[in-house]
Amino acid sequence: MNGGPRGVDVDADRTLLSVLRDDLNLTGAKFGCGEGQCAACTVLVNGVATKSCLTKVGAVEGKRIVTIEGLAPEGKLHPVQQAFLDADAMQCGYCIPGMILGAVALLGRNPNPNDAEIVIGMNGHICRCGTYPRVMRAIRALAGNGGRA
């Protein structure tokens, strides 16, 4: 969990999202819909963007989980976080932690996505404020260097 082992004694059937938020106090992963439609709850499981609202906590035992809180552990922003700031890619910000982790995963598997690939890669994420053009701009700015600035 975010670079180190964490143990929790909880019912294995609970969702990863509620355990992260309520038991581990990692509230950066957001509840948006509870049915995998909005991706506000996205975290990385072994590097793969995963909807934590649909994931049982028992299914991630022993796996590497990165939440938004683990992306800048030393306080130095991850390049994707910085790119979102630079593009002013947020309004209310509720979807943004999930968006950022989705973008990290996208750039991890395709370091140089074109616009169509960004749309396909990010289409599961909903931003109701409509910052989509700015999220595109943020990811576009990193394309070509695999999410490294």
Partner: peptide, 23 residues
């Protein structure tokens, strides 16, 4: 002028606590 969002850093790090997050 375009002053950036003053609490943008709290948003991108997930540090900001919304009502949903409070305990």
């Amino acid at each position: 002028k375009s002053l950036p969002k003053v609490n943008g850093r709290a948003i991108v790090t997930g540090a900001h606590k919304y009502s949903w997050d409070l305990k």
